[in-house]
Structure formats: structure tokens, C-alpha cells
């Protein structure tokens, strides 16, 4: 799994690629915890994300809770496989998903 971070003004874009599972989810959690405190918009670009396990969902939940306090979280380019998991688990109801 890899991250690409781009930062502009008060928005941070994190491009996540590969698999988000028990082994890799803590890495993403660390990235999110280390976001600059003034970040108002966090965009997770999931174009290259092929799989997410419940550990990955947990990190999305942590990100969502964190950004609800200081701005917003946007998921972008969600693949059909990941979208299916978000639908089953009901996460699509609470997350902002953009094309």
C-alpha cells in the first residue's frame, strides 16, 4: 500500500493505493493522526485502492469522526469493489462519496 499526499491551503489529499487490511490500516491511521490541525478538508482518493477489510473501515471511521470535528472528509474515485463493502456495512450512509 502506498500514499501520496498533496496539500493546498487547508485541504489535504491522500491518495491511497493497494490493499487496506490489518497490516496496512495502521499506516493510514498514522497518516490521519498526523494531519496538520488546521486541515479543514481531507480528501481520500481511493482510485487505486483494490480492497478494504474491516480494519480499513475502522480507519475510515476514525477519519470521518476526526474530520467531523474540524471540517469534512471526502472519499473520491471509490472503486466498485470498495463501494460494495461500504454499501454492505452501511458506511456509504455516513461518508461523503464523490465521483
Amino acid at each position: 500500500m502506498e500514499f501520496t499526499i498533496t496539500q493546498s491551503d487547508r485541504a489535504v489529499t491522500l491518495a491511497v493505493s493497494g490493499r487496506l487490511d490489518t497490516n496496512t490500516a495502521p499506516l493510514l491511521e498514522k497518516q490521519i493522526n498526523e494531519l496538520p490541525p488546521e486541515t479543514e478538508t481531507l480528501v481520500l482518493d481511493l482510485m487505486a485502492l483494490t480492497y478494504t477489510s474491516s480494519a480499513g473501515l475502522r480507519v475510515l471511521l476514525i477519519a470521518q469522526k476526526k474530520m467531523m470535528r474540524q471540517g469534512q472528509l471526502i472519499l473520491r474515485h471509490v472503486s466498485p469493489q470498495v463501494r460494495e463493502v461500504l454499501d454492505i456495512t452501511g458506511f456509504s450512509d455516513i461518508l461523503t462519496i464523490e465521483e
Partner: peptide, 12 residues
Amino acid sequence: KHGLVIGAMQGM
């Protein structure tokens, strides 16, 4: 239609 997992968000 699925609801959200238990424990994720208060007041679901």
C-alpha cells in the same frame, strides 16, 4: 438496504 455497523456512530 443496510444500516451502518453497530458502534460506529451515535444515534443511527
